[in-house]
Nucleic acid binder design. Structure first.
Lengths: 207, 207, 207, 207
DNA sequence: GATGAATGAGTATTCATTCAT
DNA sequence: TATGAATGAATACTCATTCAT
């Protein structure tokens, strides 16, 4: 399907991918301009459509490609022996920071998929997402040791609280991105603050 | 600034506001069409731009106007005698549901501000948000009784956890909106589930 | 439907119509460029689409409008008392020349409808054509005096021969348009030549 | 000029020709896509433009080549001993039907030349047509026995009438193509009807 | 001879905004 | 105050043609 694209010069490939995920992440599917993408990538109008039938195919390719890379990273970096949910979340957080530093727009793009997704692509994303994303994502928490939670607590709700708290924290950090440098965000101080949140939650939700 | 608009026939005013927030909420800032707005409001193109210099000014006016109305409702409906944070949050949740039932587009509009916010208006919203929204929002929690929290706990972080959890829960509920009716969402069962979350948090974070 | 357009300044209206029928007649529906039309008409891109929803609506409007004008002219100029087919054809020929001199592209446009009609508009034209064009066109020959034809001759075939001959002659004349001026074509010499054809046919097909 | 092409593998040559005349016949010069032609012919884009400088040259080559083949057939099949114009025309009509059944796209292509001919190629076709087509076509009628025509009749005009009538009849038949099968069109009934037209004309124009 | 990546001007249509009335 | 005609840059996408391999 996209073999033509994937067999081309790697450097140009990356220029196109970066330009495209940046544009889509910033403006959403509908408002993303293929004009801007080719300008930023330094290629001609025709070439983009030589590789991708249309804007939608480009978007769906990026979706699958980014998820693939994300999943590969997860499988590679997570220590699956460690069953404690807080340790697992800490690993995921470090992973995110790592990806953030290499492909900063990638996480924004993945996030934007859930935010915007115009009707034009929503159905396709949903059908592909159900197979790919969720199955792999569930794996992240499928083998967690649940015995450490307080007796009587609704474990599903407890996990939700942990999740929402970390999401909220990450979002708060991201808002500072424009003023802070990535280095500062990925610094010890940020990690320390996260640890403090995790500690409060562990004290609260574990036996 | 917008006094010209605010002094006009109230009924036409509302037609314009309703048409505009509906369009913006449904399509986001960039994709919202002023053509659609004037058609829905039953006014001419010229008139819209007579009252509002441009699309952006219209959007920013709506933002401020909606926040104003929201704040008025809050001030009116919150029982300020009650200082317990969990009780306060419960009141806010009920308030949201109440507004949702009366002006469904209004909350969609406010929500859409955070979801989409194209780069074209993001900066303006952020700067005004800091003044308007946060100052009023802070008032919601300025007189909270902090003595009930566990000794030694970082209270700011504890409040964040409560906040993010409720946000996460609300977001989860919203995702069901397309399949569930508003009545079902605002039902006892939803409120019960929220109570369970609040109970876990109170058990965890209070002395 | 097109009242907005028909109520505008007549001179600009005509500039648009002339530019459009010329472009459609020369290049056919698919290849006609709305860019060229607005350039030739001296209006902006937006204005054309302000009056006509899209290219197809413009084409269909022109079709109906041109047929209308053509039919009005026919009803006005034909002497319906005269039942002889050769006299009737002569009147029609004179009529065509007259129209040719006033709206030269109009007849080309009408002719082009039958020649090209891309699949994009064919169905719409056919359905509208059956009502409008054919019913009125049949009227042109509905009250002809058939008693003058040779006994035993197949009258339908005889009329076809007259028709095809005059069409062939007109086509031959048109091919000379690029080299000859309209004045020369509409001259006595051309009419004389046509008379000679009609005379051969009358001698041949009448008693 | 096109010797490079004509010296290549005959089978590939035919694949290209067939793909090209089909595309041109179906869509007309302007809308024919060289992309489609190379896809259908199974060759690369570059190769097409290696043999033919550009789309126009390809079209003009096809025009000349098809006329050549057509003329060869004519020279081969016409009985030149028979000098009667009506008999000659009957032979030509049969010839057309024969070709129609063997190379249906070829006649479609030749026909399409007259129908669509975008301004881009019209001039070139016209100038070449005068040399090629007409010279050969004139041969078809150069040795006709003119002595049978009525005394005093303008023979050139009489021949035109015969020609236009047969053209008109053929065109009328063609319009039925979409609903009728080729077999039905080339049936005895069609030929019979043509005979009736020829008979009327012979009775009218011969002594 | 043969490939197909690459180009950029071209297509129809939209839309915020202006301005004469 | 109110209208809506008019603008032109922007949109996604196509396509004949070139050229390095």
């Amino acid at each position: 399907m996209f073999s033509k694209f994937l067999n081309m010069d790697k450097e140009k490939q990356d220029r196109i991918i970066n330009a495209a995920i940046k544009e889509f992440a910033q403006k959403g599917y509908d408002n993303a301009s293929t004009n801007e993408i080719v300008k930023e990538a330094g290629i001609s109008k025709g070439l983009l459509f030589h590789y991708f039938q249309n804007k939608k195919q480009l978007y769906l390719f990026l979706y699958e490609h980014m998820i693939d890379i994300l999943m590969d990273k997860i499988m590679e970096k997570i220590n699956w022996e460690e069953k404690d949910i807080f340790v697992r979340y800490r690993q995921i957080a470090l992973l995110k920071i790592e990806i953030y530093q290499i492909y900063p727009e990638m996480l924004n793009f993945v996030k934007s998929i859930y935010k915007d997704s115009s009707p034009a692509v929503k159905i396709d994303i949903n059908s592909r997402g159900k197979e790919l994303f969720e199955s792999s994502f569930n794996k992240l928490f499928s083998d967690i040791d649940l015995s450490k939670f307080k007796k009587g607590i609704d474990i599903k709700k407890a996990i939700n609280i942990i999740n929402w708290t970390l999401e909220g924290f990450a979002y708060q950090m991201q808002e500072k991105v424009s003023s802070l440098s990535l280095e500062q965000i990925a610094s010890d101080k940020t990690m320390e603050e996260m640890e403090e949140y995790l500690e409060i939650l562990r004290d609260s939700l574990y036996e």
